[in-house]
Design a protein around this nucleic acid. Sequence first.
DNA 1: GCTGACCCTGACCGGATGGTCAAATCAAGC
DNA 2: GCTTGATTTGACCATCCGGTCAGGGTCAGC
Lengths: 214, 214
Amino acid sequence: MPVSDASTARSRRRHRTEAAILEAALDVFALHGFRGATLDQIAEGAGMSKPNLLYYFASKEEVHARLLGDLLDHWLAPLRAIDPGGEPVEEILRYVRRKLDMSRDYPRESRLFAGEIIAGAPRISDFLVHGLRPLVDETVGLIRGWTAAGRLAPVDPMQLIFSIWALTQHHADFAAQIAIVAPGDRAGDPGAFLDQLYRRLLTPEAAAERIRAG
Amino acid sequence: MPVSDASTARSRRRHRTEAAILEAALDVFALHGFRGATLDQIAEGAGMSKPNLLYYFASKEEVHARLLGDLLDHWLAPLRAIDPGGEPVEEILRYVRRKLDMSRDYPRESRLFAGEIIAGAPRISDFLVHGLRPLVDETVGLIRGWTAAGRLAPVDPMQLIFSIWALTQHHADFAAQIAIVAPGDRAGDPGAFLDQLYRRLLTPEAAAERIRAG
DNA sequence: GCTGACCCTGACCGGATGGTCAAATCAAGC
DNA sequence: GCTTGATTTGACCATCCGGTCAGGGTCAGC
């Protein structure tokens, strides 16, 4: 197992170095966007020289593409996790919670994505067209079905999805603003608020009355 | 009135040139952020040479600062327009509508602001601290009063304000994503959706009944 | 048609930026 | 300890960037 061992040890080492580069690159790209980021800054953040960084990644674009690729894999998971067989309101609330968790746990990824969209999505339009759109279409159909069955209050499904994206990503993308306007504990709990908001919006009238009567 | 005429004619001409520069600069800054924007690109967009641009503005920072200054004046207006003497739900819905109108009519300004926040708000923290925060605090107090008087369903006021910002700005900041995921008429009407959403959330009657139901 | 202030630009500068290269260093197998 | 391939970097390059400067054009007032 000499060759195999050596190769895996090397590959592990290589993997760690790449991870350090991607980590530093995420900081810089999330803060300044693709054009505003510099390889020198990324290399410094990763604790190495610029030529060494370019030994692991062929170009600035490649680093950026790798980050986006890794990110977009995660991006669709919460949408996919919606269970068509579940209770509609609870399924959507679960989706909201997952999205909010992602914003809390991966704020830089969220900002990277936001920056890319603001810049006109030049590098991720393929993902949006062939990855996100079909899944959204599917989910829109699912929501329409739920609404038609009276298990969900009648809402515009597309707008509903957009609203969830907006409300959850906001906490990551605009963290700097939130930290200034509502420093410390004054911000309240986004999770509880969103739960309340979507429960009120989505609970069908019949169910609401049943609860009222119950 | 020779001198006066000449001076106003010149000032008018100067004003037009500055406007052309700011117009082009808004395009570029909104798309690529401060660091990603270049003076050459702005000058080309404004149809002039870079040195001429720098004849009107001393530096890249000055162009950017001017854009932000002009923008931030507009930014607070909708919040200020909330009438403490009005009907709570309608006042907040009016605020939502105004914010949504701004996102529709000034999407580049919205993206400029968003990019600045994502970048850590290095150039607008003063505005956030001394302009936005006090006004938000005031509005939070107003909402608390309304809630205490039973004229508004009990909601976290700060979270309510954040949600309005998120939901309205989203349509400008993420326009590229929306255009791809829901091209053409499939997007529905954001105004109607937000109206429905906030009416359900804020109308106190619903809250009372929900509490009754326990 | 001369003057003087304003407007505009080509050429240029110093420094940053993405990327290359040859040489030095390191780690692992013998 | 020697070899070999993977890793790392200082020096360098072409280009771009923000900004300067000297000079030329424009135009209103005389």
